[in-house]
């Protein structure tokens, strides 16, 4: 059945994989002093965890975005609307504001990661399960509540920053910009375990994604326990985004870019391909982008700025080319 298209998409996946490898190798080896083993070892030691972090982030955000778009049944949305970014910003601002930038929570990376994950996990569970029931299983209203909470967190956060000591504020600002630096191996391992855990728990629901895109009535007709399935997937998406955000900081629009690139590139409804494709595109964007940021802009501009501006333009392009969203 339609074997031609499937084979073509396999080839496309291989091409993407090759590009990811190319970016990764380029990232690892560019500007490395091979003649000096010590410097080489040092460069590897610095770059390896960063590369791994980027790959994990791309996987989490890419997969979550495709799933999110499919359960909302709209390709113009991105999970950054769920408010995890602004919650992250609020948590970090509140920590610095109430405990000071020298406090254990602010300095100890593991502790701050744990606080992020736990708080975001609680909020995600409460809001996106409870409100989902409360809104009679209407995903769009959950999303609207998410945006309300975003500005709710935002108004508290901006109030705090306005009355904050400027020095404290400067130290805070660095943690509010997404960065792949200084992430220790414990956090990497822990994130990986969490993400794999989410995928394993949701494996049944993930297999239903293709059917879900037929719409609610068709999905129910084909025997899907629709509301439960959507609720669990929504929770999974939020947790994935929470883990990724806790790890590297807020990156908006990345999900929108890579999910849509994957959809345009593969032109299929098969989520096995879409999810993998989205993750691979994410890896290319992040690793390639970081390569450019480090070697061309020499760190002067954080990568999240490129992603926000690029993603914003891409969003406008999507709006312009679409008749119906």
């Amino acid at each position: 059945m339609n074997t031609l298209a499937i084979r073509a998409n396999r080839r496309k996946l291989l091409i993407l994989l090759a590009l990811v490898l190319l970016c990764a190798i380029g990232y690892m080896l560019l500007d490395v002093n091979f003649s000096n083993p010590k410097l080489l070892a040092y460069a590897m030691k610095i770059r390896t965890p960063k590369l791994i972090v980027m790959l994990i982030t791309a996987f989490a955000i890419g997969g979550a975005s495709i799933v999110f778009q499919s359960i909302i049944n709209n390709t113009i949305v991105t999970p950054c609307l769920l408010g995890m970014n602004s919650l992250y910003t609020l948590i970090h601002t509140a920590v610095v504001f109430f405990l000071g930038s020298a406090s254990v929570v602010a300095i100890n990376a593991n502790l701050s990661f744990a606080v992020d994950v736990v708080l975001m996990g609680i909020v995600a569970t409460v809001i996106y399960s409870w409100i989902f029931k409360k809104t009679k299983h209407n995903v769009l209203y959950v999303l609207l509540v998410g945006t309300v909470l975003t500005s709710f967190f935002g108004s508290i956060q901006t109030t705090l920053t306005r009355v904050m000591d400027p020095n404290e504020y400067d130290s805070l600002l660095n943690t509010l910009v997404a960065s792949f630096n200084n992430i220790n191996s414990e956090i990497i391992l822990f994130s990986l375990v969490l993400l794999i855990g989410i995928v394993v728990v949701l494996r049944k629901e993930l297999a239903l994604l293709d059917v879900l895109t037929l719409g609610k009535h068709q999905a129910i007709n084909l025997g899907v326990d629709y509301d439960r399935c959507i609720r669990r997937l929504l929770l999974g998406v939020t947790l994935c985004i929470a883990v990724a955000t806790a790890m590297v900081g807020p990156i908006s629009f990345l999900g929108l870019i890579i999910a849509n690139l994957s959809r345009q590139f593969f032109k299929t409804f098969r989520h096995s391909q879409l999810v993998v494709g989205s993750a691979l595109f994410g890896m290319i964007v992040l690793v390639g982008g970081q390569l450019i940021v480090e070697h061309i802009y020499t760190y002067s501009v954080p990568i999240s700025v490129f992603i926000t501006v690029g993603g914003g333009l891409y969003f406008l392009y999507l709006l312009l080319t679409r008749k119906k969203v």
Binding site: M1, N2, T213, G215, H217, Q218, I220, N221, G223, F269
Partner: peptide
């Protein structure tokens, strides 16, 4: 729900399928 879907099928008017889906793929569902 799964057992029921082998005994009873429903087709509603709201069938605006978004995905790029061929006839055969739809029938396969």
């Amino acid at each position: 729900s799964k057992e029921l879907s082998k005994r009873l099928a429903i087709l509603t008017q709201s069938n605006n399928i978004q995905m790029k889906l061929t006839v055969r793929e739809l029938v396969t569902f």
